[in-house]
Design a binder for these strands. Structure first.
Lengths: 176, 176
DNA sequence: GCAACATACATGACGCGTCATTTATTTCAC
DNA sequence: GTGAAATAAATGACGCGTCATGTATGTTGC
């Protein structure tokens, strides 16, 4: 979705600030990525919603809770695991609490904090949702990829995540 | 609605399992993808918002308009290009119109329809926003990838997109 | 022991995205 | 032509996500 490509060669070796536009290859890749990501997320959300009444966000929260021995976590732990904004998590937990998927429990060690506890209803919800959801993930995503491609994809995602993490502390965030 | 875990042709046959759960490699890749995608989208949105007052959605609409000779498109053309839901596009165009980024123009050929026209303000907005935005896309995304990886990524995204498209017309999507 | 600061979490406002529905027009069968 | 169905687009309701801010508790320097 970038602007006109530079007519230039396919060699892009320009470090950072210098190259304003994406070349033709990059543009195609970027557009394909954006479209794929948007459609995939929409598909996963819709399927989860229809079959289980959960959103993808709900699902991820519940997954992390069920991954935990006591099925309870401090919000800041969930925040770290999900890489969400704090207020997003807070709002979302409020809504999930309202629907009975999780409960809030006071934290004796730290008066400021709390625990998010999985309810029985929450456990049943994700138990019922998981097979269908994983089926769709597999159908649209993994069934189209070889194991090598899956491995490469993980490496790329991790690398880009690292770049995003690196930028978090730095002051010179300018790009223009 | 819970579905019986009947092993249909669309779900992978898993030896010895009712539920087609992801194996360890797939799970790591999937979580890495989800985290990367979420963080990257948040970063791009934030930078665009701060530097230009645009969202990524605004940006994509404006890109498609500027890609057009007359800088005007029918909403259904935009919808096809963006692969958005119709009501999302309609709502978004309403908001962009309110902000003066686009205008609505009646369509003489088809009384039901309209044209979305780029305004001067809209053109200035994307012109101002583009270098910074592309800089961030490059910084976090393409600078971390080799040309081979970019090419592969495009292929994977296109392939997955194809699977999503294929499923659109089929009735046997779910519903056991 | 107290001011200054940091941390954990909540909240209100507001823009965004989806679903369901509505309106207006066009197309097509007959 | 007339009625049925398809198409273009808008709208209201409602949940989601971000920003800015608020509140309570913990920590630290002195």
């Amino acid at each position: 979705m970038e602007r006109p490509s530079r007519p230039g060669p396919s060699e892009r070796a320009v470090p950072g600030h210098d190259a304003p536009w994406l070349d033709a290859d990059e543009q195609r890749a970027w557009r394909a990525y954006l479209r794929m990501q948007g459609r995939l997320a929409a598909t996963l959300n819709r399927q989860l919603q229809i079959e289980s009444g959960l959103s993808l966000a709900d699902y991820e929260v519940l997954v992390h809770l069920t991954d935990t021995p006591e099925a309870r976590l401090r919000p800041y732990e969930l925040q770290w695991a999900l890489q969400w904004e704090q207020s997003r998590l807070s709002h979302h937990l409020t809504r999930m609490r309202r629907r009975g998927l999780v409960e809030r429990e006071e934290c004796s060690d730290d008066g400021r904090g709390a625990f998010v506890v999985l309810t029985e209803k929450g456990r049943q919800a994700i138990t019922a949702a998981a097979p269908g959801h994983v089926g769709v993930v597999r159908r649209f995503f993994f069934d189209g990829l070889s194991r090598e491609e899956v491995a490469l994809l993980e490496r790329l995602a991790t690398r880009i995540l690292g770049r995003l993490d690196d930028a978090d502390g730095e002051p010179g965030d300018d790009a223009g």
